[in-house]
Nucleic acid binder design. Sequence first.
DNA 1: TTGAAATATGAACAAACATTCATATAATAA
DNA 2: TTATTATATGAATGTTTGTTCATATTTCAA
Lengths: 97, 97
Amino acid sequence: MSEIPSEKILTMMEELLNVASDYTRLKILYVIMDEDKSVSTIVEEVGASQSLVSHQLKVLKKANLVTTHKEGTKVYYKLADDHVNSLLKVVQEHAEE
Amino acid sequence: MSEIPSEKILTMMEELLNVASDYTRLKILYVIMDEDKSVSTIVEEVGASQSLVSHQLKVLKKANLVTTHKEGTKVYYKLADDHVNSLLKVVQEHAEE
DNA sequence: TTGAAATATGAACAAACATTCATATAATAA
DNA sequence: TTATTATATGAATGTTTGTTCATATTTCAA
């Protein structure tokens, strides 16, 4: 007897899934999964343009999937919490079958 | 040391998340979560137009998130497998905090 | 065979979005 | 200050997509 979540919860779920459902952002999330990394490192490892990565990092941050801290001129991004990990794991398992 | 999934896997993950990341489709998935239901029942319980529900059911089916069987004029939809449940659970938990 | 009920489909449209390009801002070093 | 490195931002654009409206198809009963 699972209930349908409230409109508010459903909307929040929709937003989270929307943010996660982009190739570039998925790749970013994996790149910073184990340790926080600077934007320039993320740009290298993701293999996308600096502008695109910066735009998408902003999307991820606005949705609270990542947090940041600054060191000098560099900005380090990391996953916000463990839910993001769980989400990626479940989706990856589904995809790998 | 989590590896970045292959391009193919990432694309599949992107597609799954995309399909899940819509308000109407999320609601449909919850409506048929416990038992399979006919389109007309889904339309009622979701509270969207028949056309919209039908279109979105098609999207869900194409992505293999749901399966169908026919009884007379009615078509019954149900969740394809348990991954869908797990995915919704993880996302819902994230949203509820 | 007509009619009604259930479901699917196609066109049309506005809104959302990913990406690129050019440029701005911030921090530091020389 | 000036130059350089790191990051962010804004405009522009082409594509995708959610929704509606109208209509088609299927199934079965009368």
